[in-house]
């Protein structure tokens, strides 16, 4: 231990210099190995994160989520409005007579979620009382634009919304 400080046994006591030199070399190797492992792990993790982040994905330009959604037609017998997500956006499906309609639920005024009023057959916004027809058309302001219209198809006993 004492002679590690001075290389070549210059302290004049203790073990021969060769032993100390190899022990020192070993310690150096271990130190470098540790450093290399740490750097490797850091670079590996960092590289993985950066690689995943910058690699383009086909759906890179959309908001993500499923592009279409479906549910059993019978569900419309139990609920006046069926809510689901299309491309991550909330959509409501309602039935008027024989037809089904699918509308984006985000109010075009300030973005509250509208609800279905079966008696009036209109979407009504709880925030500032905008009203929308089942086609999405504005029936009453302050909403400046119609609700987003989605396509709802009845295929067999399921409803498909795109």
């Amino acid at each position: 231990m004492d002679s590690i400080v001075e290389e070549g046994g210059a302290t004049g006591k203790g073990a021969p210099a060769a032993v100390d030199a190899s022990r020192r070399k070993f310690m150096h190797r271990m130190y470098n190995l540790g450093l290399a492992l740490w750097a490797g792990a850091a670079m590996g993790t960092g590289g993985y994160v950066v690689g995943r982040y910058i690699w383009p994905r086909p759906e890179g330009s959309t908001t993500g989520g499923e592009r279409s959604a479906s549910f059993p037609l019978a569900q419309l017998d139990e609920q006046p409005m069926v809510k689901l997500l299309v491309e991550g956006q909330p959509v409501g499906v309602v039935r008027v007579g024989p037809d089904v309609y699918a509308l984006g639920l985000v109010c075009t005024h300030l973005g509250c979620l509208v609800g279905w009023n079966p008696e009036a057959r209109q979407m009504v916004c709880p925030c500032h009382a905008s009203r929308f027809e089942v086609t999405g058309q504005v029936a009453q302001g302050p909403a400046p634009a119609p609700l987003k219209r989605y396509e709802a198809r009845i295929s067999g006993d399921t409803v498909v919304v795109t």
Binding site: R52, T63, G64
Partner: peptide
């Protein structure tokens, strides 16, 4: 706004960046 939401929710590790 949508691009920022997209970064946060859909891009891998976008929330981290």
């Amino acid at each position: 706004y949508h691009s920022v939401v997209h970064i946060t929710n859909n891009i891998p590790f976008g929330w981290l960046v």
